[in-house]
Write a protein that binds this DNA or RNA. Sequence first.
DNA 1: TATGAATGAGTGTTCATTCAT
DNA 2: AATGAATGAACACTCATTCAT
Lengths: 220, 220, 220, 220
Amino acid sequence: MAELALKQSRANRRRAQSFESLVQAGLAVIAKRGLYETTVEHITEAADVGKGTFYAHFPSKEDLIHHLVRHGFDELIAAGRAGAPAGRTPAERLAGLIQEQLRVLGRRRDLVILLHQVRGLLILQPEARQRLRQEYQRYVRFLAEKCREVLGKPGLSQAEAQDLACAIAGFVAGTLSYEMLVRGRQGMPAALRGPINAFAAGVAARYASSRRPGNGSRPR
Amino acid sequence: MAELALKQSRANRRRAQSFESLVQAGLAVIAKRGLYETTVEHITEAADVGKGTFYAHFPSKEDLIHHLVRHGFDELIAAGRAGAPAGRTPAERLAGLIQEQLRVLGRRRDLVILLHQVRGLLILQPEARQRLRQEYQRYVRFLAEKCREVLGKPGLSQAEAQDLACAIAGFVAGTLSYEMLVRGRQGMPAALRGPINAFAAGVAARYASSRRPGNGSRPR
Amino acid sequence: MAELALKQSRANRRRAQSFESLVQAGLAVIAKRGLYETTVEHITEAADVGKGTFYAHFPSKEDLIHHLVRHGFDELIAAGRAGAPAGRTPAERLAGLIQEQLRVLGRRRDLVILLHQVRGLLILQPEARQRLRQEYQRYVRFLAEKCREVLGKPGLSQAEAQDLACAIAGFVAGTLSYEMLVRGRQGMPAALRGPINAFAAGVAARYASSRRPGNGSRPR
Amino acid sequence: MAELALKQSRANRRRAQSFESLVQAGLAVIAKRGLYETTVEHITEAADVGKGTFYAHFPSKEDLIHHLVRHGFDELIAAGRAGAPAGRTPAERLAGLIQEQLRVLGRRRDLVILLHQVRGLLILQPEARQRLRQEYQRYVRFLAEKCREVLGKPGLSQAEAQDLACAIAGFVAGTLSYEMLVRGRQGMPAALRGPINAFAAGVAARYASSRRPGNGSRPR
DNA sequence: TATGAATGAGTGTTCATTCAT
DNA sequence: AATGAATGAACACTCATTCAT
């Protein structure tokens, strides 16, 4: 019996190992070749397992992608939660949130590429691929919640918070992808710190606490 | 002579028509199915021409994409040039630039999708597909130039201008794509106007004229 | 009326010119790219005529090939006829025939390639492409007739003459093609002169006049 | 362990079977339809495997052809080696070599066609397809070596041996192809025996041992 | 469970031929 | 007669997925 348990445990360990290999290889290969030029075989070769093993762990290629996206957002959300409440003013806290996301994603070229390409996938086909889409919604909802927390809930409606979250997520992802494309480098450009602070301040001025100025702070 | 000219003209017209059909169908189909699930046959069917006709006009599928990308950026740049120097202060002018890009792209779901996916394509393969990459560089250089123009050239180095241009292009593209994905709508969200103004003001405070404050305006 | 005749004549001249351009360009392009990698467009480009013009002169690509093959064999046959009856003994005359064919074809890389590839085409499909096949038969029949003429008709049956003609045609074509392939040069290798003479002498000893030795001259 | 070996062995057997089917079907189909009208699908249908299976065994269509050519020459060379040193005089031995090649190839219509068409392919493109070309060079080198062995090495320079080998290979291949084309039959025509002996005798007289007559035996 | 051989629908691309001008 | 734009069947090759072992 103990032997059987041992055997199972060993089998489980092996299985877990295959799974982990596939996940890591999947992200690495996709980061290198992109979603569309990555084949299942590329992944299983990088993971050093048989091709059939892939399908013992994932029903389809899309399921691996789903797994990668979920875990990617898990990391982003965790980072957002961890470095959260720093800063004394709403503007400082919002700027902190944005910069934290930029900082985390700026070190994760693989995630930027994966999330970028999957986003493109999802904009089309509004009905299909619901599971994947929900991961993005989860992330945006997290950011939205975070914004309300940081700016003060009464000041920001749900819809406004989502718009703001989209802007933040889009700003982070878009800026990094343009930097990677045009300047060939990764990481958050230091020069953006000032503008980000300004952006955060502007948002805070518009939404923070319960004050609600006329039409947003006009540009000086 | 006139007859010959007429003949050529008629033949040319027919050829031009095929070309235009292909270009329009190409953009439409890609906007609907995405770059990767669009086949040449989808396009020729939508354009109502034979499959071979495609290759009479474009050496390859990638060449159509290049054409689409080039013309897309042509529009964006034209819009940026047209609505250019409005606003009395640097901040107002910068905000105008960003909002103009957001406004133009917000009405062009097709372009957002196309440029998004091609961007993903280009981040990988830094050496290949130079022609395509140059279109993005052209756009970013235009934005950078515009930023320097709007903020006052002495205040902004070339490198800083490029970082800012990447941030603007990324902000616009990223925000719109997240909106389209999460909220399923297109167009620029009105609620972003305030934050954009704030962002522009922050940038202007940092770079405009020749003043160069310490480390950017700190968030209040 | 005279004007009309003139017009027609001019039109005819132009037509003849197109035809001749196509024929020359066809042979040149096929010699360079081979039968199977030559497209009609390659030919019309080289001939500097429109693509449609090809079909105004030849019902199909195969008809141009037929024309080229026919004229190629015309040349070979003319050369064989011209340099024909030289030599005092049957062996000398036979050797002269072989060397003449080798000499002529050795200077016509284009013909060697064309006839080689078309021969390959024809070995398959015994029923189709009769017209093309008949050109080869015409050539072999010419050689056979020549052999009988040279060796003395009574000595050589029709069937034997055809076998011999096949051997000669094959020897010439095969040797040149192997030389071109392996040694990368064209032209008849001088070193073959001796063996060819010997071959001819052997054949003559076997067949010439009416003597009919037992089983052919045994090799010494 | 034994179980694993068995598993591999069974899988290997299946793989080997597919491979063998493809090779045989490939040769058969090419012999029937020719190199250029044979599609991969024709082959896989004849081999009764899926289309993708072809590419699991050969990187490309050309690689199958290479395999076929290599093995074809292997057979020819083996036959040449096996029936080698028969005959007492150089002339007899040379005649034996030629007749052996004629005899072997005369029974292999498929090989004659394949090697003929590939030869045509290689005469063009002197730089590309090196691997294929090397097979022909291997064969010609073998024949050349054999000629020197048979005639006595001092009598024949390397270059002369290669010319002679080209002549032999060309004679065999060319004669058989003309026979197949014109007379529609395969096999070595019996009537050639005499001329071949004579040819061999002439070559021997020119090159054998160390004697070196003036300019080859003149035809009588 | 892990494997990798097998599969076949689907891809971008070519090219002989047609036909309106 | 000459043109060249248009055509679509056909091709070499790919790859997500299946399944016998």
